[in-house]
Design a protein around this nucleic acid. Sequence first.
DNA 1: TCCCCCGTAATGCTGCCGCAATCTTCGCGG
DNA 2: CCGCGAAGATTGCGGCAGCATTACGGGGGA
Lengths: 223, 223
Amino acid sequence: MRLLLIEDEKELADALSGALSKHGIVTDHTTHLADAFELTRQNSYDAILLDRRLPDGEGLTFIPMLRRTGTDTPIIVLTARNEPLERVEGLDLGADDYLGKPFLVDELMARLRAVLRRPPSLTELQISVGRMVIDPLHLSVTVESIPLELPRRELLVLVALAKRKDKTVLRSTLEAAVYNYEEEIQSNALDAHISRLRKRLLDAGAGITIHNIRGVGYLLKEE
Amino acid sequence: MRLLLIEDEKELADALSGALSKHGIVTDHTTHLADAFELTRQNSYDAILLDRRLPDGEGLTFIPMLRRTGTDTPIIVLTARNEPLERVEGLDLGADDYLGKPFLVDELMARLRAVLRRPPSLTELQISVGRMVIDPLHLSVTVESIPLELPRRELLVLVALAKRKDKTVLRSTLEAAVYNYEEEIQSNALDAHISRLRKRLLDAGAGITIHNIRGVGYLLKEE
DNA sequence: TCCCCCGTAATGCTGCCGCAATCTTCGCGG
DNA sequence: CCGCGAAGATTGCGGCAGCATTACGGGGGA
């Protein structure tokens, strides 16, 4: 797991990085919003820890900036300002949780877990993988801004895989994503969709590949 | 004692309610997740019986929803899906037990008792050992962020061992984790899996070792 | 009517995994 | 310290389940 920590107090940042690493969490650290924004473009984080008072501005302004790019990475706001009104302010801007300083690392871990196991929010605007951008809400796909039209079932497979890129998606999960429980399939329909989808993605130069994990499921990776 | 039963097959639900009432258990019944969530807000249940395939979605999604509200009511998942991989998926989402259909009411009662006397489970999101991170929910394994693809049976062995790292895992426990009850093995198939898994972990530089405790079972340690 | 999505099934291939043979390690008793 | 038996480790083999691909045709929408 990889976190982005945006915090200007060096001592706190170092202590936190150390503590988190003991939980197997890799932490990228920066002190300025401008850098943070750049980092989120280059990397994919599982969550972001955000301080409010920062050298180059109010931390909260970062949230809409990020959300506008379509990222729904969970954000936990860390701050000394812990009045109820201010919590509301943060949460309304799209933060997922709010943690007043000082706090115990254990509490942070608990909130992290809670936030990460939360079902993906509906505010998720688009998924970006390889050279393609997927908009699950409008069910549209573009490769380098050029629209790519996909049949419905193939699109559903693609979305299900893209939402969990680099992670194995069970065969049964994919079936659940493509078929509702009334529909039945008694053949290799899913395999056929995968195969046709692969061909289309290749032709379109999407920059992603779909791997099979024998006996388990499928996995989408960037090339 | 009061249970919440979330099940869309009317016949099964009625039969179950009847059988449970003979044990002095009151059962609330609903067929939809949305209603179930509302009911848990209004009532306090001793345990929840949850079907997976429901008209308004996959039952498992209910678990994080509920856990997020801070409730630790034991959940037993009822389902026709009883493959080892799917058991892992269910339990790691925070279910307390898993019961494949069809089942005997007596077995359900036994599991209910077991679950009620058990201290609330703390499910880990991911397991970090050596240089590797195991995400049982997404069934993915990475070594220093590089995905490691493992065959199904070896993956199941690894997850079972990693969950109890530094502790001996009984041979029989491992077998139960890898094979369902219909399958039988009459050879050293498990040993073979361990051997091949060791080789793969070594090649990948996972930073862990699997030790044998003669006559008892196996044990996973960091190097 | 034409098009194309999509379920089905046939075909070929890959590699998982059960099995068993063989070798190694461990623990115990003398 | 040695020897023996049992448990474990390793590995090749072969069966076959699972996957990839593709052709075919029904059926629904434009």
